[in-house]
């Protein structure tokens, strides 16, 4: 199956330069991007076998001797293309702060404790239905230096591959009802409200496990759809 990747779909993305997020000012291209056709080099992409992940990689609560502190949660959903076909066998990588809002990284100097039982990284391969599932703890909000009293909403970082090098996506999953949304320039870098809300997971009571863990559902839609007859000049 070969898909097409209309560039109009990228209108959902933030602009490269988004001055409210200050680091973009010196790290965004200033000259026009060159428009080129998609060739075999863009239409193909990395392929991962199930040996890319090991048993337990998707459970972030079992990587150390003890259990991490915080609210245990399940995060699951499907990876789709633009026609809502499942994207099977694709690598999904996540990383996040711990329940106190601290990352295992020396640059993170937020005076909140590290958790010896939590690193905060996981990965999995989607099944034939495009389904993925992680078990983790809810990440905390944390301060950052973008502006006075700047705090990031709770979020989990996601890295997804898909069927070509054009479907490559790095993004962040947010939690429903976060009171920090109006103040976050990264979240608000996505200009369209509907598109912004596609980064927010939904609370999933049906798959919440009694006496054990809350569940959040988040579907990811990557670029790529089938060419429709209307788009085909030969018809």
């Amino acid at each position: 199956m070969s898909l097409i990747y209309p560039k109009e779909s990228l209108n959902a993305y933030p602009k490269h330069l988004s001055p409210e997020y200050k680091s973009t000012v010196k790290r965004s291209p200033s000259k026009p991007l060159i428009i080129v056709p998609h060739t075999l080099s863009e239409l193909t992409g990395p392929v991962f076998g199930h040996d890319a992940v090991q048993d337990g990689d998707a459970d972030l609560t079992k990587q150390h001797k003890g259990e991490p502190l915080g609210e245990r949660i399940i995060v699951h959903g499907h990876v789709y293309d633009e026609d809502k076909r499942p994207v099977a066998d694709t690598l999904v990588e996540i990383w996040q702060a711990n329940a106190c809002g601290r990352y295992v990284h020396i640059v993170d100097q937020h005076p909140a404790p590290l958790d010896p039982n939590f690193t905060g990284t996981g990965r999995t391969i989607t099944d034939k239905n495009g389904y993925y599932k992680f078990i983790t703890v809810k990440p905390g909000a944390y301060p950052w230096g973008n502006h006075h009293n700047a705090w990031r909403p709770n979020h989990i970082h996601f890295s997804v591959f898909g069927q070509s090098f054009l479907t490559r996506l790095v993004t962040q999953m947010y939690f429903p009802g976060d009171y920090l949304f109006p103040y976050d320039p990264i979240f608000n870098s996505v200009p369209d409200e509907k598109a912004r809300l596609r980064m927010v997971s939904t609370f999933d009571l049906e798959n919440t496990i009694p006496d054990w863990a809350l569940c959040f559902r988040w579907d990811i839609v990557l670029r790529g759809r089938e060419q429709t007859p209307l788009d085909n000049d030969e018809h």
């Binding site: 779909s9 933030p14 633009e82 970082h157 890295s159 996506l169 990264i186 839609v221 990557l222 670029r223």
Partner: peptide
């Protein structure tokens, strides 16, 4: 047709 999930920065701590 579905609308795609927007991109966000990889951030400093990946």
């Amino acid at each position: 047709m579905s609308d795609i999930t927007p991109s966000q920065t990889v951030g400093p701590f990946f």
